[in-house]
Each structure stands twice: as C-alpha cells, then as structure tokens.
Design a protein around this nucleic acid. Sequence first.
RNA 1: GGCGACAUAGCCAAGCGGUAAGGCAGAGGACUGCAAAUCCUUUAUUCCCCGGUUCAAAUCCGGGUGUCGCCUCCA
Length: 525
Amino acid sequence: MRKNNLEVYNTLTKKKESFVPKEEGHVRMYVCGPTTYNFIHLGNARPIVVFDTIRRYLEYLGYKVTYVQNFTDVDDKIINRANEEGQEPLQLSAKYIDEYFKDADRLKVKRANIHPKVSEHMEDIINFIKGLEEKGYAYEVDGDVYFSVRKFADYGKLSGRSIDDLLSGARVEVDQKKNDPLDFALWKKAKKGEPAWPSPWGEGRPGWHIECSAMSCKYLGQEFDIHGGGYDLVFPHHENEIAQTEALTEAPMARYWLHNGFITINQEKMSKSLGNFFLLREILEKFDPMVVRFYLLSTHYRSPLDFDNEKLEVAQKGLERLKNSYFQLNNGLKNAGSFPNGDKLKAAAQKCRSEFEEAMNDDFNTALAIASLFDLAREVNTYLKETDLDKESLLAAKEVFEDLLQVLGIVFAGHEVSDKKLDELINLAISLRQKARAAKDFATADWLRDRLKTAGVILEDSPQGTNWKLEGETKELMEKIMEIIIELREKARKNKDYPTADLIRDNLKDVGITLEDTPQGTTWK
RNA sequence: GGCGACAUAGCCAAGCGGUAAGGCAGAGGACUGCAAAUCCUUUAUUCCCCGGUUCAAAUCCGGGUGUCGCCUCCA
C-alpha cells in the first residue's frame, strides 16, 4: 500500500475531505450506469472513463476496490423504444448492454466486479420497498407505491435544497394519486403490454431510483465509500436514493458522493433531450479510442468539458507526443549499456511520479497529473540525444511511464498490423526490386529476394510478374519486411542515392507508415 | 421564480493567500542530404469589472457583468 493523503470533493459536504474508507485497505464504490436503450454517447462516456480512472488510481495506491456499476434495463424509454421497433424491451436492453461493453472495452474501461441489472433483482427491490412500507415511509395507491418525502427529515441534504424550494420551483404536473406532489414512485403498476413482475401490490415494475438503493445495498452494504455519477444525477436520483436507503437502514448510504461535470457542445450541455449528442462510436470512427480517453482526462472531472473535433485533434497531438517519447525510449533501450550519465533522467522519473501522485491525491486532478507526464517526456527526449544510453536509467523512466499510463488507462498500441498493410508492403518491396532489376542492379535485386526469403516471403518471378508466398504470422512478417526495407533505404542513403531513399520513404507514407531517423537508427510507426 | 457553478494568453487548461504549470497553435534558432521526430528561446507586468481585508490576492469578502447548469428524462 502506498502512503497517500488523498482528498476528494464530496458533493454532500460541498468540500474536499480526506479520503478514509470505512474498511481499511478496501474501497467499495458504486457508479450509476446507463439506461440501455441506445448506443452510449460522449456524455455517458465521461463518467465511465472518469470513475474507471479513479478506480485505477485507488488500485495503484494499493486499495482493494469493489466496483459496482449497474445497468438500468427496465425503464419507460426502453419500453417506448422497443415498442417503436417491435421488439421485446428486455431484448432491446440486452442488445445495448452488449454494445455498451464494446464501446467501454475500446476505451480500456475495466469491467466492474459486478454489473447488476434491474431485471435480475426484482426480489431485492420488492423486499426493499416492503421494508419501507413497514417503516411507514411508503404507501400504496391503486397498485402504485410512493415514497413519503416529508417523512424523511434529511431530504434535500445532497442537492442542498429545502422541500419548500422544491415546491415553489415545481414544474411537474401534480399527480393526483400522490399524497404530496414531492413523493416519487417506488413501484409502478403495469400498464397494458408493458413488462411486469408480480409483487405484493400487483403486477408492475420498479421506479427508477429504487434499483440503485436495493442493488448498492445488496452488494456493498451500508455506508459504502464512494457513490459516483454525472452531476445531473444529484437531483433527484441520488437525493432519492439517499432518502430510500437511509430511511430503511438508518445508516448513511455512502461516505463520499462524487459527481462529474458535463460534456458540452458550444457551451451547452450535451443531452439526449436537446438532441445535441454525439454517439461514442461516431467519434471512434474518426479518432483512436485512446485519444478520446486522453481528451476526457485532460480536464478536471468536475469541470465542464466542451466538445468539438478540433479539441480532439489537439488531444491527439498531445498524446502523440507522449507516445513518440515512450516508443523512442523503448527503442533506445535496445542498445543501452551501463553509463554514468543518467542521474538527471532518474531524478526526472522520480519527480514525475511524485508530482503525478500529488495531483491525483488532490481530488483526482488528471489534468495536472498529465502535465507531469509531459515533463518526463521532455527529459526522456533530451536524454535520448546522448550517444551512450544507460539502461538502468532508461528502465527507471520506462517503469514510471508505464505505471502512470496504466492509472490513466492509456495503452499505446505497437505497430499497427493488418493483412492489407502486409500486402502493400510486399508489393512495395517487389516494386523496389523490380526497379533494381530494371537498372540492371542484380546484386540489389538478388539481395532483396534472399533477405525476403529468410524473412518468410518467397518470391517467384514469372512472365506475368512476381508472385509471392508467405510463411509466418502477419505481425512478424511485417516487422521483418520493414527491417529489410529500412536496410535497403539505409544502403541508398550511404550511397547518397537520396532519390531512392526518399522514394522509399514516400511510398511507405502512402501505406501509412512514417519513418523517423534517429541517432539509434530508423524507426517506424 | 428558487438553488448552484464557472469567468486565467490566439485556443485548451492547472493553480485557490506568497509573486502565473502543462498542451496545442504562432515566431526565431539548433539538429537533418531533405523529411519526420526532437531540443533551445520566445508568447499573460497579469488572471471579467469595481470596491474591501491583508505586509502580500488570480486565489478571501462585498457588489456588478457575462456564461452555463439543476429544479422534468438525462451521465
């Protein structure tokens, strides 16, 4: 366990507090997940990434984390959508739960320990409501069950409003069935054609808020450590959860309430009702998932984050800088030895780690934490200009780099490989050989054929052109062929045959491969 | 109408009482056969405005102005 003095901003107390879990060394957290009637949009992605990062940092500190994220799979919007599409509601939501995981996986969001669904917790929910009824906090009216808000003295403590404020600002049409306009539904009587479950109050389904109370209680118990979600859940969702849970258990529901700010478009909240939302997968068509993740973490989680393509492009460039540095670091490691010139780098690595931790300890300030990574990248890049590289120092920097990227959930993909690219590369190699043959440079042509053969690409010349066969895995083949092409270009450069060298570089660019000449040799990406 | 948040360079964004991080963009220079990448220098006498507290304020207090959010489903 790392020593820490983590402070988190608690919506409940409206200030930063020292973070102390109820059980030493173990953090229990619950994060409100999506209602699954569509693909997730960027606004949904923010809390997912933010709380995943918080979880990763807690784990980095050495805590055991029990992470629960629910799916709301029984809901009006799901039912409506399913009716429109002539589908079963639960089928529809199951589909979007699948799709949710596809998106979350691409963003490198770790799976929760438990992903409870409403549809699978009817008994827990019903028992919870029964308990409230027994305690006098709930009442039934014609198959509906409501929570008596006025019976719960602390109502409003999370969102900071009084019952009178709520009444004066009420925009809701008063439902005559309720005893009090503020009361909210715990259980809704089934309408015709709706999914319904049997209950002591007849066929019906749960209200929205009760699921989180019942499921968090079931998996995390009383007074769990962190309850998270978007800021728009503070009222009424979380307020109502508190009322239900605390009325029943007579214990605090959660110790720390964390809420992330909104994604905005032109300064306006991105939301389904405004229709100004972007589906995550639309964005992932244009941008690497890691760029999106990096962008989401480049601002403090409680601040609003404005979205447009340009901002993603900036994030992309920034991440690229880190990525270049990280890969050049690995490249430098190949020929590193033991030299006494790495003290500054080692110190920088250590400084980076401590600044990163300090930033994260201050209410998960990822924006500041990322800045420490940029500082390390600069030191690494500077050190890489040395002719003698010290392995131990490079490894120290690499370890910090990797540990911290792991916390952020950023993974740098290695060389992108695909069969299509492999084909293009081989065709390029063949055309280069053809060029040599045309120039009667048979030495080079044969050299190329032999080297390719060793690599697993067998060329066969025929009157119709050159055919080829492959032996081996795509990834290995690509690495080897690149090695050969770079070697070929190196030869040309030595002979000051720059037109050929540049032609090779340009052709590679067309395939989507960029060459970089460094003191340690040429690398590609 | 009630409640709340925020305003920092061309853009994004930290800092939240001790004399303005970081990224992107721009300018100049270095390296390079040319590129790419990288490095160095440079870019806010000042943090929306006006008062106040303090030896000291972007940071605290009061008053404006502007933007946004919640009070209805929302992450």
